[in-house]
Amino acid sequence: MTVPADAARRRIVELFLSSEERLLQRWTQLSGASPDDLRDLYEALRTALSSDDGDFADVRGLLAELSRARVRQGHTPSDTARLVFSLKEALYEAAEADGGPEALRGFVWFSRLVDDLGLFTFETYTAARERIILDQAEQLLELSTPVVKLWEGIVAVPLVGTLDSARTQVVMEKLLQTLVDTGSEHAVIDITGVPAVDTQVAQHLLKTVVAARLMGAECVISGIRPQIAHTIVTLGIEFGDIVTKASLADALSYALKRSGVEITGAAKTRVAVRAERA
């Protein structure tokens, strides 16, 4: 026996609309959510189902709001989806009581609709999470690239964490801008906090150094740990005539010497520093 699809659809919508109070009560019982939320949802669903164009924008809006609110209350996204799915069970009881083939066939259609809505709450949840992660990545990018002034005319960038193209771009731009703003002729890029250097990272570093050189500043790379030196040599990366130092202290002393500052009595406890005529 076949049942025309639109007849089945009409019947289940009728059932849905006619048994409002009972449905809501059962739904509340099954899901354990607040009746007010469910009533709003029910009302939006009723409007959507009664209209001919089947516009579920309001329902989706309500669901998105509900999903967000429940996450804040500490519910898992599965809980929220289950809340929506429990409407099926509530309506199934009504369809079973009706017993007609239209009602059962229509229930299948309605069930698919509810599935979509349940999945939509999950999607909302993921989208919200995704946005948070993106925001945090951006904040991390800003946080993790300070350019510090070590001395008059010497700036340093202590790099911490993994270097990728996006970060290197930010570091490069920030460093070059600082060189211009402060008129510094020496820059130290300290990679003590960089866990690994591969060909790509090395390429990024080289680009930064060459760009600084183009602007008329000298770059020193410091903080190269033994394993990293090993990796760089094993990979066959050529640093060319770029000055590299083992520690930030070495790099600073090199840059000071280059900028004409003389450090005397380094071996004694007292350190006297004299700057040459600028």
Binding site: E173, L176, G183, S184, K207, L214, G216
Partner: peptide, 25 residues
């Protein structure tokens, strides 16, 4: 003299390192 950071980055991306040219801030 006076090369802007954006210009320096562009030149590096173009693969031009201006060999033999002195630069100053």
């Amino acid at each position: 003299v006076g090369m802007r950071p954006a210009v320096a980055i562009t030149l590096v991306e173009l693969g031009l390192s201006l060999g033999g040219v002195r630069t100053a801030l």
